[in-house]
């Protein structure tokens, strides 16, 4: 990293950190620059890796599919007009429809069947039993159409406890992860920039 680069990065870092004190012009400036850069970055990457190879090049090669792709692009872009804007509902429908269709087998498989397979273990030990009870109890917490009474209520309560253990564990691990990031930025400020480390 060049010296100019380090200074630039350091100033930006401090400007963002200043938000911790309160919202201020330095933060707003850094925020707007970050957002502007990131929009530019995404547009560049999108144009260069998707629109050029998948739309522009096929058209230049005379591939009719390229024209179909171009039509979708244009339909999407009708949004800028108030009169033709409704046409953009067509590409939206493709996304929603195809997305729904694609997700059904994927969801059932990855989120339901494979998880069930993992619960039903080939050997049964304490952990397998705790695991199975946890899954059943959590499911009963998500049971909506029955008043929580009797044994059902007990199961749902147990479910919330399992949920709380999960949330607690995630929280602990995530605190760990996030602190690592702060450690990295602090090392940059104290070490790379100020040379104190």
């Amino acid at each position: 990293m060049s010296d100019a680069g380090i200074w630039l990065a350091a100033i930006g870092t401090l400007a963002i950190f200043s938000f911790l004190y309160r919202d201020n012009p330095a933060y707003r400036a850094a925020e707007q620059i970050l957002v502007g850069l990131s929009v530019g970055y995404l547009v560049v990457i999108t144009v260069r890796t998707t629109l050029v190879p998948k739309v522009a090049l096929p058209i230049l090669d005379g591939d009719p599919w390229g024209i179909v792709a171009a039509v979708w692009v244009l339909l999407m872009w009708t949004r800028v007009s108030t009169r033709a804007g409704w046409l953009s509902r067509l590409p939206l429908a493709v996304i929603v429809g195809a997305g729904a269709g694609l997700s059904i087998p994927a969801m059932l498989k990855a989120r339901v069947l494979s998880q069930l397979g993992a619960v039903i273990r080939p050997e049964i030990d304490v952990n397998a039993v705790v695991g199975a009870i946890g899954v059943l109890a959590t499911l009963s917490y998500f049971y909506f159409t029955r008043p929580p009474t009797g044994a059902f209520r007990v199961a749902a309560r147990t479910g919330t406890w399992f949920l709380m253990v999960f949330f607690g564990a995630t929280f602990g691990y995530t605190i760990m992860s996030r602190l690592s990031l702060l450690i990295g930025r602090t090392e940059f400020l104290l070490g790379d920039w100020l040379g104190l480390l």
């Binding site: 397979g117 993992a118 619960v119 039903i120 273990r121 049964i124 199975a132 059943l136």
Partner: peptide, 23 residues
Amino acid sequence: TVIAGLVGTLLDWDAIGGWLRGI
């Protein structure tokens, strides 16, 4: 399914779990 699968495993019959793990 979970309960049947686990009871099956206890009885040395892992068809349900095996099938689910297989797909």
